[in-house]
Computed example of a mutant assay.
Amino acid sequence: MHAQHTRRLLLAACALAATAGCATGPERNPADPLEPLNRATFRFNDVIDRHIAQPVARGYNRVVPRPIRTGVANFFANLGTVPVMLNNFAQLRFADGMSDLMRLALNSTFGVLGVLDIATPAGIPAHEQDFGLTLGHYGVASGPYLVLPLFGPSTFRDAAGFGVDQYASPTTYAEPRARNVLWGLDFVSTRARYLNATDLLEQAALDKYLFVRDAWLARRQSKLDEDRPQALPDYDAGGAADARPGTESGQGARRE
């Protein structure tokens, strides 16, 4: 789950850089009214990342053999299937929810608590869902962009959703000492897999804050849009006046 989310965020960022470049003008994005505060938090997170997270992640990659690192990543991805599954059911995506349940059952048993990913080769795909997307699915507005200390990009809606997802995570219910170890190991494992992404970001972005913000917001919006019915093209030679309801032109006529 974490791997797919980060990979797609990076791809979205690269696409934004290639098509539009990095916005450096004085105009403030209306989705980011808290930009001064967010920039300060972003700088704080960047200092923590440079001086603590990255060195620890590099050490982890040097010391821990690749097969073990893969097993650790698989283990946490399997735990992450639980809130994904619950959010799919909450959005009435029953097929995806049942797929998540099958994936969780297969990897937790034959995959030795998820250390081995048996489900993917078996044709059971992983999904991305969280409670922020569930709220968006039911029409809750995202609210302003918000950079969270240590956790990074979010919005008011997604920050609230993140808190709810923690209650759905099995790690939350572990004994406190074990829970803290699991949280720390998950963070280091995730950060270690994307050290190269940091180098790419450094090279591509004139303003890292804008680069990350715009890519993250675009990615979240695409997740909300991807399962919505797409408007059919209007093949009627009569034009927009005869367009059927549900097409783009028909929607446009109603908006007017």
Rank of each mutant, 00 (worst) to 15 (best):
A160E: 00
G184R: 00
D225G: 12
V188S: 04
Y173F: 08
D186V: 00
D207R: 12
I124G: 08
G163F: 09
Y173Q: 06
R219Q: 00
L146I: 12
R244M: 06
V181N: 08
Y209F: 10
A119M: 06
L148C: 02
Q221I: 01
P176W: 05
D117N: 07
Y194L: 03
T155W: 05
V164Y: 11
Y209I: 02
F162D: 00
A168Y: 04
A204Y: 02
P170F: 05
Q129E: 15
E128R: 15
A215T: 00
V140C: 08
A197K: 04
L217A: 03
A205K: 07
T190P: 05
F151G: 12
T198H: 09
A168H: 00
P153F: 02
D199F: 09
S169Y: 04
R228S: 06
L217V: 02
L182Y: 15
A159S: 12
W216H: 04
A192Y: 10
L116P: 00
S222F: 08
A241C: 01
D207C: 10
S142N: 15
A218V: 01
L116A: 05
A231P: 09
G114W: 11
T190W: 01
D234N: 15
P233W: 12
S154P: 12
L135N: 01
H137S: 13
A243M: 09
L133N: 10
L210N: 11
T172S: 14
A122M: 10
L200R: 04
E202I: 06
S169D: 11
V147W: 06
V147I: 11
A168W: 04
D130L: 11
L182S: 15
P233E: 11
W216L: 02
K223M: 06
D117V: 10
A119S: 12
Y235S: 03
T171A: 08
G143M: 07
A204C: 14
H137T: 09
G161S: 02
H127D: 02
E226V: 15
